[in-house]
Amino acid sequence: MLSHPASRLARLYSKFRQHNGFWILVALGPVYFLFAVIRIYPILETIRLSFFRYHITKKKNPFIGLRNYERLLSDDAFHAALINTIQFTIMAVLITLFLALLIAILLRSIEPVSPIFEIIFYIPVVTPWVPASVIWKWLYDPMYGLINYAISLFGIPKQGWLQEPNLIIYAIVVVAVWKMLGYYIIVFSVGLKNIPTTYLEAAEVDGASPLERLRYIILPLLRPIILFAVVMSTIQFFNVFAPVYVLTASAQGAPAYDLKVVVTEIYRNGFQYYRMGYAGAQSVVLLVFVMMMITLQFMVFRKEH
């Protein structure tokens, strides 16, 4: 007679065979393995490193407990980066989603030609961040840039878009909105197309104004799409790196104000100062922060629902 644990094992094995466990393992195993290696392991390793004074060229990298996190509390550069990132994210998310929804609604009113406009709006989305940012750097050039030339036609003096600390964040928000707008127009367009026209027609017959139809029919039915857009854009903009890196890179003839955001700070600590442990602690804070914001967004949308 089989012992108790052995019989449980046999039952498990029989269930495994019954549910084609082997084939599931063969099919999904490599995917899970890759996911673990590429996604899970780096996150765990980053968390581990954040407890060490880890410098990649040093042979001794001692365990220092929570000292990296302690240092974060008094790091002015990180605080500035965090505040700038929050400001940037709020502005970029609100402007992008507001404009995207507005344009998507307007495009519905010119349904037959809307695909042409959708393609035009989508072109920046497929343009890689770095060349797009370089183009904008030229546009923003204080001496020879097109933007300063355009405003000078209206008698407005030249501005240091990338040199003035008070202007640069707005300059980068403009680039980010321009880049991602097309994507969210498509997202909202898909959502709008899925709203049954009968609802809107019935409301129109009942005498609802366009604004009332927007408020009481379109927006409530678009709620899942809006939630998706808010979550995705928050993650994207909170992790902003390339446009900030390119537009704030101070080069020979193109001086720029060094606007700090969280990811450029992580990059700087990790790959310029080689303080991998400290950069790890910053990454963990970023992760927690983004997770908290996403949770909050889910809670707000669910509560309203």
């Binding site: 204080p142 001496m143 240091g160 040199q163 003035e164 020979q252 003839g253 001086p255």
Partner: peptide, 14 residues
């Protein structure tokens, strides 16, 4: 701040 700077600024004559 709005001028070209550094060696590029000097080479540009500004």
């Amino acid at each position: 701040w709005t001028l070209k700077h550094d060696a590029q600024g000097f080479a540009s004559g500004v």
